[in-house]
Design a protein around this nucleic acid. Structure first.
Length: 271
DNA sequence: AGGGCCTCCTGAGAGC
DNA sequence: TGCTCTCAGGAGGCCC
């Protein structure tokens, strides 16, 4: 399940094969993704790819005529293949390039998306309301403090709210709160600035570290095993409910918060 | 307006 | 062995 680091590593992995390439074809084998793949997506054929950007977990393939927006959803992945590469189950979309390479989109659960937008991409409804990128200077303790003011929701839910900060999915929200020593159920508006300084720093560190590890683990997007997955990064709490806290030896608690698995140490993490 | 819940989907794993 | 059940989860959309 791609989180922001996986998406960024994917972007870095496929970019060199896409940039300055003319698109020679778009094959949609299954258009039933999160939203139906629009006919207009064909507009990319004949265009030259200028750049591949990322905003939150959206990959943006830019051409002069418009932008293809790709979201990997829960289970999506992109690979670089050739016309000889056998089509596998759930290989829903091929973007063929003048080089002979193909950008192939695979997504078993079809929570992903493949869209087309002709206007300046910043104006797309999916992107206009997004909060700052966590790894930029726009994501500061002050920003977070302001965004959480008077919020009664749990801090973990706010951390995963794309209007507040993008790209922090369930795994890294769990990990960052553990690293910051903050109980995930803490009322967001009551976390003081001092603790938010630590939280912001941990979010940045954890995401940056995952990208760094992903970059080395996942260097080759032309291999079948080049599928983004969980990185080797050591997870302290996620998926470890009932097991022993790596810091204090206490048993980790597991609860549901916003229908998401939430794991924490009742001793190390306080409200 | 803010908060909470539902929904899409398939594969994995558990239980019988 | 093989079936059935449950669960996981990003994020838009809807309802209150």
């Amino acid at each position: 399940m791609p989180e922001l680091p996986e998406v960024e590593v994917t972007r870095q992995g496929v970019s060199p094969y896409l940039i300055d390439q003319e698109v020679t074809g778009l094959t949609v084998r299954n258009a039933s993704l999160r939203w139906p793949v629009p006919e207009l997506a064909q507009q990319i054929v004949g265009q030259t790819i200028r750049s591949v950007h990322r905003r939150a977990k959206y990959l943006l393939i830019d051409t002069d005529a418009g932008t293809t927006i790709v979201h990997l959803g829960m289970s999506g992945s992109l690979r670089i293949v050739t016309a000889l590469t056998p089509v596998e189950k759930h290989d829903h979309i091929d973007l063929a390039l003048a080089s002979g390479k193909i950008l192939r989109f695979n997504d078993p659960r079809r929570f992903g998306a493949w869209l087309w937008y002709e206007l300046p991409i910043d104006a797309h409804p999916l992107l206009t309301k997004l909060g700052p990128e966590p790894l930029t200077d726009a994501f500061t303790p002050d920003h977070l403090f302001g965004a959480l003011k008077n919020k009664k929701k749990a801090i973990k839910l706010c951390l995963m709210d794309n209007h507040i900060v993008v790209g922090v999915g369930n795994i890294y929200a769990n990990e960052a709160l553990f690293a910051a020593g903050i109980h995930p159920e803490t009322e967001a508006g009551k976390v003081d600035l001092e603790r938010l300084v630590i939280l912001v720093s941990e979010v940045k560190q954890i995401l940056a570290n995952a990208i760094k590890q992903g970059g080395t683990t996942l260097k080759d997007f032309t291999n079948a095993d080049g599928k983004p997955g969980y990185f080797a990064q050591k997870l302290h709490v996620y998926g470890r409910g009932g097991q022993i806290c790596t810091q204090c030896g206490n048993l980790l608690s597991e609860i549901k918060l916003g229908q998401r698995a939430t794991v924490f140490c009742g001793l190390c993490q306080t409200r």
